[in-house]
């Protein structure tokens, strides 16, 4: 180790990973419905896309969580986004190619992608 900046670099690189293990309630949660209906409709590639998008952007305060059946099986794959202090947003009929837009507009810039939400699609 020749300098402190080297140490800092390693720290930042690994922090995003270890950070998952903190009992923190303040981050954004992306909840993917992964019951039989969700999986059958293709929830897994959607979730994987979220994971790779988040790691690409190195977003520290975002967690991807699975959940069971959300109830509107005909609209699966369903993804719910919880931003602390705001009402939850439900995206329906998700596909992997919709993911990048949600991450950049909603997760990063705070602007809900209206056309993908349950209100617009049902």
């Amino acid at each position: 180790m020749k300098s402190i900046s080297e140490l800092q670099k390693i720290r930042e690189k690994v922090l995003s990973e270890v950070n998952l293990r903190q009992d923190r309630q303040d981050g954004i949660r992306i909840v993917v419905g992964m019951a039989t209906c969700g999986i059958a409709a293709g929830a897994r590639p959607v979730m994987q896309e979220f994971i790779s998008e988040i790691s690409k952007r190195n977003l520290l305060n975002v967690k991807v969580i699975q959940t069971g059946c959300i109830g509107m099986c005909r609209l699966e794959p369903i993804v719910e986004v919880y931003v602390p202090g705001q009402e939850k947003v439900t995206y329906v009929k998700m596909t992997p190619d919709k993911v990048a837009r949600i991450v950049s507009e909603h997760i990063v810039n705070g602007k809900v992608v209206d056309e993908y939400t349950v209100g617009a699609q049902s």
């Binding site: 690994v14 995003s16 990973e17 998952l20 994971i51 988040i54 790691s55 967690k63 969580i65």
Partner: peptide
């Protein structure tokens, strides 16, 4: 570094 969604 790979991003893992869950740690066991």
């Amino acid at each position: 570094m790979e991003f893992y969604r869950s740690h066991v």
